[in-house]
Amino acid sequence: MGDDPVGLLDVLLGLAVVAGAATALTARRRMGAVVSFLVLGVLLAVLWSRLGAPDVALAEAAIGTGVTGALFVDAVTRGPPAARPPGAVPGAVPGAGARAGVSGALAAVLLGAGLGTAFAGAAGAGAAPGGLTGQVLGRMDVAGVEHPVSAVLLNFRSYDTLLEVVVLFVAVLSVTATLGEERPRHPAPAARAATLVWFCRVMAPVLVLVAAWVLFAGSDRPGGAFQSGAVLAGALILMDTAGLGPGPDHGRLLRVALVVGPAAFLVVAAGGLVAEGEWLALDPVWAGGLIVAVETLLALSIGVALTVVFLALGRGRVSPP
């Protein structure tokens, strides 16, 4: 579709995305900025599917908008309404805001124009628009899965995915480090709305089922461990809002769930070194089963990791009695 003249739908979608971003970036209040950012995430998910990237659309909806949205909304609703009152900025000069606004807008236009010219020029000069599509499709018979994106993620370029999981793991370590020593968590307030509790009890098993479906769909159609993990995190975060989520006595279970995915990935990687003579190499005969096994454990670890980041956001400090 790259060389087709731009259609009306593409123009409208592009303008909506830019307008959503501009609203999110210039909103006066934190809540306004966060809600506009969530709208932008939904628009981006539509844009990704328009550009033929259903995997990316799923990930954007589940991770980029779902989990990130939960994090931002939690940060805004439980934190102070603004970092500090607008007048209290040290060294603020009257009228500086308007001047900064004008020069900022000018800088944004110049930067955007420069980048746009560079991108369009580079895309026009692209000699081989084939990219790596041909190479991937040519090796699908030894991939172990039928969906090209899953094959790239867990077989052809699994080193990227391994390190990506490690980044998520480091993020969990960082946020739990800010908690300091184990502090007693205040018992959740008993008065939860009965509707919320009932809704979560009904929805949690459904969401786990959806997560499992997304996980196994990844072998022959869009889906996979990351989208599935995000749905699982969504279920756990929803349960937490109803007081049904992981509590202090689940610490050991959470730690095991966090470690099991990366550990299984490392075992399979080392197994490749032993059996195939190459780190992360997969025998085509075993590749399918190994990929599904690693993906299942990864989805569990990713879901728990995203949930722990969310929980750490709300649980740092013991509020005064």
């Binding site: 790259g2 990930a59 980029g64 090209p148 990227d160 995915t161 990506e164």
Partner: peptide, 20 residues
Amino acid sequence: AARTDPPDPVLHALVLTGIV
């Protein structure tokens, strides 16, 4: 990635990594 049909799976995998 959308320059080819089907789109480039390596770029899509990179984007998924970026989102996470």
